[in-house]
């Protein structure tokens, strides 16, 4: 029983991690709480859904399409709501991205209606039993894609030149610019990567819950924020681990305590972390030190 819950926790946590990675990347580079990220996740889910429904694409094409569409959306967000907004007012970009959140969510309601739309079965359901654990092919696929993405991202940030530029910009804008890093390009790339990953996460979530709704973004956004905080603002590795942890905590508390208390738990964790350890579990600095 407990092993089974651990698998479920990992499944839930993997999607939290994917959303939180985008948040934390963008926060690291811009110091911005990018509110619209949850809606990007929702848009990704709908793009995937429509590719499957109307273009009869297989799941890989749907994932790729959602990633590309969301990456484009991320770039658009930079040009519309981040770059033209006054830099000297810390609230201004936050509020303009809240505006973007509202636009995206309600455009989705306007276009797709306020109801949940069923996500068709794209992967053949088979159950594998390994010892005490039963795992389905869908779960295996979601876990595989999520973990694969995280490993790729990790390599990208640690091993490539642009990854190094992202780390340098996150450390200090001015110094990075002085050393020849094109900060504007780094910001664009960061939004592209973060949003693309969120798009994939959206499709995976659609498969997992076999449904997509215009309101799925908000809860994903809130959970993503908690995970970002838990992992330490701007800490990508921290976000990966913290996402898995939160997923585990939620599933275990739902299984052994109660389902309504599950959300209470995650928000209590949020507040306790805020009060006692604002640098997160693995973080080394706070937003004030930036």
């Amino acid at each position: 029983m407990i092993y089974q819950q651990v698998i479920n926790g990992l499944m839930l946590g993997a999607s939290y991690s994917l959303v939180a990675i985008g948040y934390t990347l963008i926060f690291g580079v811009l110091g911005l709480l990018y509110f619209a990220h949850g809606e990007v996740f929702m848009v990704g889910a709908f793009v995937g859904l429509y590719l499957v429904l109307y273009a009869h694409a297989n799941i890989y094409v749907a994932l790729l399409g959602a990633m590309v569409a969301c990456a484009a959306l991320g770039v658009a967000a930079v040009y519309v709501a981040v770059r033209p907004v006054a830099k000297d007012r810390p609230l201004a970009p936050l509020i303009s991205t809240i505006g973007l959140t509202i636009i995206l969510q309600n455009l989705a309601v306007y276009i797709f209606g306020g109801q949940q739309v069923a996500f068709p079965e794209t992967i053949k359901q088979t159950l594998y039993t390994i010892g005490p654990i039963t795992i389905s092919s869908v779960q295996l696929f979601i876990l595989g894609v999520a973990v694969g993405l995280m490993v790729l991202l990790w390599l990208f940030i640690e091993r490539t030149k642009i990854g190094r530029a992202i780390r340098a910009t996150a450390e200090n804008h001015e110094t990075a610019a002085l050393l020849g890093v094109d900060v504007n390009k780094v910001i664009l790339v960061t939004f592209m990567i973060g949003s693309g990953i969120a798009g994939i996460a959206g499709v995976l979530d659609g498969i997992k819950n076999s449904g997509v709704s215009p309101f799925m973004g908000l809860s994903a956004a809130v959970k993503g924020l908690i995970v970002m905080l838990l992992g330490g603002l701007g800490n990508v590795f921290g976000a990966m681990i913290a996402g898995l942890m939160l997923g585990m905590i939620e599933i275990l508390s739902a299984a052994y305590i109660g389902t309504t208390e599950r959300d209470l738990f995650s928000f209590m964790i949020l507040i306790l972390i805020l009060i006692y350890r604002p640098t997160g579990l693995f973080g080394t600095r706070t937003a004030d030190e930036r």
């Binding site: 006054a86 007012r89 201004a92 303009s96 505006g99 959140t101 509202i102 309600n106 455009l107 306007y110």
Partner: peptide, 22 residues
């Protein structure tokens, strides 16, 4: 109706932050 009203809100919010952030 509601969705459209909120879309217009969102646009106002972004335009405000660009033109009159205060």
């Amino acid at each position: 109706e509601n969705a459209k009203r909120l879309i217009v809100y969102g646009i106002i919010l972004i335009v405000m932050m660009i033109l009159r952030p205060d």
